[in-house]
């Protein structure tokens, strides 16, 4: 097991290098360091001396991938790409273009993101499974069919609509919750309740359909019949057998998502003014702050790979037939 994890982690290195390469190529395709300097120093009367000083400050005066002026290995090593990548692999994200420590910012903004994403994920998972089980219980009835139509309709509505409509209805007209904002600690709940509700609602359509199809596949299997034959009630069958056996396919889809919950939701956070990593990323994209984007891409990739590894582990844990090598 441990050997397997280590092996997978080693495999992650070339992938992360590739990811870095893509981000660098894309970002410096857009922006020259001169541009970044000007954007940071402001539009009013920026002189070349100021720009040079700024670039030197950031290490952006080095060439991107190949240093002609260096010797030997330094052709490649003394470049922006290698220097910055090396730092990233030590999780040293450096400073943003405006001079703040990115690691400190990420640590701080991670929590609001989790405060939204985790409840949305957990409540969403439970709701979806519960509704799916209910529908399996009433399979092929009017309720089932109506619910399926409702699910497709829910799926077909743009997520933006949910957000805009809910904000107008619950925030502006009914005064139930603050329209936007965030507060840490106990008073947090009134800020997160609406985003969580919307998140669950927006996901319920596709979620229920997916879980329902998983359960329906299971319900025709022999063990379900024999369980029924033993005289178990339908509810017992559902919870004891169906849920347990449906867990495997559910896990493959779900575990990989868990680490990426840290990244937050781009749209939700910026609509509700929640200071999480999602809005951090959007701001960085819009202000073209390369240091932050690069850090977030790297972090996202790491979390994704962790998710893949976790999935494998969970798989072997639930299904003894699967062995990790």
């Amino acid at each position: 097991m441990l050997a397997y994890i280590i092996k997978r982690l080693l495999f992650a290195i070339p992938i992360l290098l590739g990811v870095n390469f893509i981000t660098f190529a894309l970002f410096f395709g857009v922006n020259t360091p001169d541009n970044m300097a000007r954007a940071q120093l402001g539009a009013k009367q920026t002189t070349p001396e100021m720009i040079a000083a700024w670039k030197a400050d950031r290490g952006y005066d080095k060439p991107l991938f190949y240093n002609q002026n260096a010797q030997g290995m330094n052709h490649v090593v003394d470049t922006l790409f290698v220097q910055e990548s090396a730092k990233l692999f030590q999780f040293d994200f450096g400073r943003s273009d405006s001079g703040r420590q990115i690691s400190a910012d990420i640590q701080e903004r991670m929590w609001p993101s989790l405060a939204i994403a985790l409840p949305t994920f957990v409540i969403g998972l439970f709701t979806n499974i519960a509704v799916a089980l209910l529908l399996v219980l009433f399979r092929a009835s009017l309720l089932d069919r109506a619910a399926m139509v409702a699910a497709v309709i829910l799926m077909s509505i743009s997520g933006l609509f949910y957000i805009i409509a809910a904000q107008v209805l619950f925030g502006k007209m009914l005064h139930w919750v603050p329209i936007s904002g965030y507060e840490s600690g106990w008073s947090m709940w009134k800020f997160i309740i609406l985003p969580v509700f919307i998140g669950v609602l927006a996901g319920v359509g596709s979620g229920v359909r997916w879980y329902r199809s998983i359960f329906l596949e299971e319900i025709h299997k022999d063990y379900v019949r024999s369980a029924r034959a033993k005289g178990l009630s339908e509810i017992q069958v559902l919870f004891k057998h169906l849920l347990k056996n449906g867990m495997l396919p559910i896990l493959t889809g779900v575990v990989v998502v868990i680490p990426t919950l840290f990244m937050g939701s781009l749209i939700m956070e910026s609509f509700f003014g929640i200071p999480g990593l999602g809005s951090y990323t959007i701001d960085a994209i819009q202000s073209q702050d390369f240091s932050i984007v690069k850090a977030m891409v790297f972090l996202g990739s790491v979390l994704y790979i962790v998710g893949l590894i976790l999935t494998d582990i969970a798989y072997s844990w639930f299904d003894p037939r699967v062995r990790l090598r």
Binding site: V19, I22, L26, G29, I285, V293, G300, S301
Partner: peptide, 25 residues
Amino acid sequence: YLYTTLNSIPGVLLIAAAVLVMQSW
């Protein structure tokens, strides 16, 4: 390797970066 690498970059970020490149081009 190719598709795992592409896949592991958060989608919106990849699209945003690519669109910005395209705009500047």
